[in-house]
Amino acid sequence: MSNYFFEILRAGINTTFQDRGRFHMQHFGVTPGGCMDLDSFSIANALVGNSLNEGVLEFAYQGPLLKLIKGRTKIAMTGNVLFQIIKSNEEKLMGECNRTYILEEGDQIDILATKQSAYGYMALEGGFDVKPFCKSVSILSRAQIGPNEGKKIKINDKINIRTNSQNKKNFSTKVINNNQNLIRVLKGPQFDYFSKESQKDFFSKEYKISNLTDRMGMRLEGTIMKNVVSANIRSEGITKGAIQVPADGQPIILLTDYPTIGGYPKIANVTSVDYNLLIQKTPGAKIFFKLIELREAEQLYKEHLKSILEIIKNIKEIN
């Protein structure tokens, strides 16, 4: 353990360490987890010069208030986040996302809120000094797996950081937030379980994201899907973004911390290209689904990855 650390003065609503996730364990009942928004996660790490799989702090809605008790570090905030830096002399500085800041000993970083979005990320140069479990530092709070005993970050926790930064340069890049409300999906394996009318409704009526939304799933409110075959299927393995419909006819989208197996029919599956866009929507937001074909989804994702690499390539030094 290093001697450099932050202290948590306010925990925030759902603050956890996350990386890309924990794989090759779903057959043991361990869901991959990982960052909800992998794009923001990658950009945060790139800004501070880390490997793109270094663990970061993920927070939702209201973030934590951290005080750098010992050491010096460089941080980057990504997503769409309202935050301020409180210098040790009480001077306050409003923060900007997608750029780095150097924090000196005694400085505080107050992550006030995510703006019109759900998740934000804070990466720091050299990374957090936390212990991985099965090659990942992602916290799976439901199963209490991962660093910090698998628990969400709470007040008075001390978070160790690996390096005492000597770096004096800051960097930034430009990210355009996408606010579209059209979510492209592929047909699910039980698409034919639903009536023709419901199939039509699913791709034309709006759905509202309900309050019952977390890292595991997103419950939707809207037109009831009529199942004409069976409301239960034999339990089977789950994929991220599966849209399942239980007996009440209201779709639930399974998100990053999904249960490893499930037994409800799946009408559709969110495409990888639109997954990050979806999980950044907040309760009350309205979305529409559009059906596309597999080849198109693959092509769109390739283009999307290119655009993220472009953002990373455009990281430039600032004064």
């Binding site: 996730g21 034999r234 339990s235 089977e236 393995g237 789950i238």
Partner: peptide, 11 residues
């Protein structure tokens, strides 16, 4: 990334 067997399927 993962291979998940269930009663009658492998995902």
């Amino acid at each position: 990334l993962n291979y998940t067997p269930s009663y009658n399927k492998l995902i």
